[in-house]
Amino acid sequence: MNKKKIEKTADTKHKIALDFTIEGNNFSSAGEASIRLKHALQHIGYPALLIRRIAVAAYEAEMNIIIHAQRGVLKAEITPETVTIWAEDEGPGIPDVDLAMQEGYSTAPDYIREMGFGAGMGLPNIKRCADKFEIQTHVEKRGNIEKGTKVKIVIYNK
């Protein structure tokens, strides 16, 4: 996680876009992007319990990129009504998504598990926290579509 860009889109008035680059295997800065996102939400005045859900989902997505991919991005768009998070990576992709969605199923290597990560709760946890959850994954490059995983998380402020 190092750079952060701000883009203002013209269509909606009150909207903020945050953009974080995430480096694979860099455990020393793990959680940095999620914490930044959490602070932004606190500044905006989102309800505390909602922030917790968003932060947990973002953190799991961020950790997935760090554990499985070389690099990736975590993007968030905040409006007073919704928070949308995109986690996109150039990792190996997920061969069997249904299996990956099962609690306890993990492909993380042993050294990751020794660090206390990779318990196989990442994707199920994200799904539990999210109001809307989409996942697109490709294990190999097909035409224009690059290999990697894209996760979209939407949480409503209701």
């Binding site: 701000i6 009150h14 005045g45 007073p80």
Partner: peptide, 27 residues
Amino acid sequence: KPFPAMSLSKNMAKAIDVVEQAEKILS
């Protein structure tokens, strides 16, 4: 009870603008 003292404005829409402006200034 929690006493969150972090929000930058009582109005959420306004707070979003403030946060965005702050990010711009920070850069």
